[in-house]
Simulated assay, not measured.
Amino acid sequence: MAMSGGTEDGEPMGEMNTTPLIDVMLVLLIMFIITIPIQTHAVKVDLPQDSSTNRPQEVDPVKNKIVIDPQGNLSWNGAPVNEVTLTQYLDQTAQMSPQPELHFQPDAEAKYDRVDQVLAIIKRANVTKLGFIGNEQYREF
């Protein structure tokens, strides 16, 4: 760190010493860089399912029903499904004209997180006719 002195005749220095300011700025910059969270990049890929063992059930052109049981398992019109198959069914319903109704019935004991995940899948599929059924089970007496 170089410091500038006054002139030869003993007069005081007339300029501000910026070296401490630069040191503080460098320390703050390093602290800022250290506190930035590491960006993780993940790509989720839905791999195709074996169609010989998992024959898709036909989508009803009038109404379809999604049920979530207390363990968080999904069923589509009474048949158990996973998220990938549910997404495929919802994409089929979104392509139909007119779009069939979708009835959504989560069990009262189902975890909210699971219900929220399924609602996000439904929203991403651009379903416009969605109805919640079985809400009377949540009524307090």
Score class of each variant (00 low, 15 high):
M3H: 14
G5A: 09
E8L: 11
D9Y: 15
G14Y: 10
E15H: 04
E15C: 08
T19E: 15
L21Q: 10
D23R: 01
V24A: 07
M25D: 14
L26T: 04
L26Y: 15
L29R: 10
I30H: 11
M31Y: 11
M31E: 13
F32P: 00
I33Q: 14
I34K: 09
I38Y: 12
I38F: 13
L47D: 08
P48F: 10
Q49E: 09
D50L: 08
D50K: 06
S52I: 11
N54H: 07
N54Q: 14
R55N: 12
R55D: 12
Q57K: 10
Q57H: 12
V59R: 00
D60F: 06
D60P: 01
D60S: 04
N64E: 05
I66G: 03
I68C: 01
N73H: 09
G78T: 04
G78N: 03
A79Y: 07
P80F: 07
P80E: 15
P80W: 10
P80H: 08
N82A: 03
V84P: 00
T85I: 03
L86R: 00
Q88G: 03
L90N: 00
D91W: 12
T93R: 07
M96S: 06
S97K: 10
S97T: 10
S97D: 15
P98V: 06
Q99H: 06
L102K: 02
F104M: 06
F104T: 01
D107G: 02
A108E: 15
Y112Q: 13
Y112K: 15
Y112P: 03
Y112W: 13
D113K: 01
D113N: 08
V115N: 05
L119K: 03
L119R: 03
I121S: 04
I122M: 05
K123N: 13
A125W: 12
N126Q: 13
N126Y: 11
T128W: 04
T128N: 14
K129D: 08
N135K: 15
R139P: 13
F141Q: 11
F141P: 12
F141E: 13
